[in-house]
Simulated assay, not measured.
Amino acid sequence: MDWKQYEADIYQHFSDAYPDCEVKANVMLPGRYSKANRQVDILISRNMADFEMRVVIDAKHYSRPIDVKDVECFLGYCADLGVSKGVMIAPQGYTPAALNRAFNDESDTELDVLNYAELGEFQGQLAIPYAGDCGVILLAPMGWVVDAERRTGMIAALYQRGRTFEDAGKAKEFAYVNIWAKNNDASDVDSLIRLQNEKLISDDPHGSISMLSCSVDAHGPTRIRCFESSKQPASEYTGFVEFDRFIFFCVMYSPTEVSKRNLRKMRSILRNTLPIYVRMSE
């Protein structure tokens, strides 16, 4: 496949994957620091309720894997363009060090690197976790995957692609999700938050609770809470979406230095989660 067909195939993939977005090929954008126009292979953009989403796609037609230097150049490129999401794609994939460099940079940039054959995984692994007769269609944010294995207190977990659940726990950078069926103890999102807050403070009287801005274009009323405690090595953020019969919530742990980036992932999870109802056959 020559480079023209390669770029055309990638453009078509993202056009099909993002029907609600504007997808353009070979776009020129001004550099904030370089003061020069920069060429973008593919630009995905969409005006959301609280921000403009822009993703730049760099279609490398290399005969070798993407390496650390390529990732570092791309991080600088994204910063110059003022975009916070970027994807690098190459036919021969990437080195393990390149993937680590992409996921562990302390800037606010969300970056993923893919083998051309992995294009279908860009939007993240999709799962349908449920509890009782209530469930959700859950889509991982960019660079993360959904782990649908059930563990105590969670119906699914999310963490960086390339890690295991145990690795993510050691790094204190992962999320888990659960479902609360509405009842007399908590019949809406605000009463559930009050109930959980009482438990948090009861368990840790010196902990600090705050509510964050949450203008997310989700499929129901949304809230985001931050809980911080000297007992916890990482900040705990919980995002809530209220649906007709249940409340979906996602608990995310994040090191302070990358909390802004991970809060964008939290908002992505809340924005893309859809409710489903499970009919049990007899």
Rank of each mutant, 00 (worst) to 15 (best):
M1T: 13
E7R: 08
D9P: 00
Q12G: 11
H13Q: 14
F14H: 11
S15E: 15
P19S: 13
D20Y: 08
C21H: 14
E22N: 09
V23W: 03
L29F: 03
P30A: 06
N37D: 15
R38T: 00
V40N: 03
L43M: 08
L43E: 06
I44F: 02
S45D: 03
M48F: 12
D50L: 02
M53N: 07
V55C: 02
I57W: 04
A59Q: 01
H61Y: 15
S63R: 09
S63M: 08
R64P: 07
I66A: 02
I66V: 15
V71E: 01
C73M: 06
C73Q: 13
F74K: 01
C78R: 00
A79R: 06
A79E: 09
V83T: 03
K85P: 00
K85E: 08
K85A: 06
I89D: 05
Q92D: 14
T95E: 13
P96G: 15
F103Y: 13
T109I: 15
E110C: 09
A117Q: 15
E121A: 13
Q125H: 12
P129W: 09
Y130W: 07
G132L: 06
C134A: 10
V136T: 10
I137N: 11
M142T: 03
M142Y: 03
M142S: 02
V145N: 08
D147G: 05
R150L: 15
R150G: 07
R151K: 14
T152F: 11
G153Y: 12
M154W: 12
A157K: 03
L158Q: 07
Y159L: 02
Y159H: 14
G162S: 09
T164Q: 06
T164M: 07
F165N: 04
F165L: 15
E166M: 12
K170L: 03
A171W: 08
A171D: 15
E173K: 01
A175L: 04
D185P: 00
S187Y: 11
D188M: 04
D188C: 09
V189S: 05
R194A: 12
D203S: 15
D203F: 14
D204L: 07
G207L: 00
L212V: 06
S215I: 11
H219W: 04
G220V: 05
G220S: 04
I224R: 07
I224M: 07
I224F: 03
C226K: 14
S229F: 09
S230G: 10
E236W: 06
G239V: 01
F240G: 00
V241W: 04
E242C: 02
D244M: 08
F246Y: 07
F248P: 03
F248R: 05
Y253V: 01
S259M: 10
S259D: 08
R261Y: 00
R264K: 06
M266Q: 06
S268D: 01
I269N: 00
I269G: 03
R271P: 01
T273R: 00
L274W: 11
V278I: 15
S281H: 13
E282C: 10
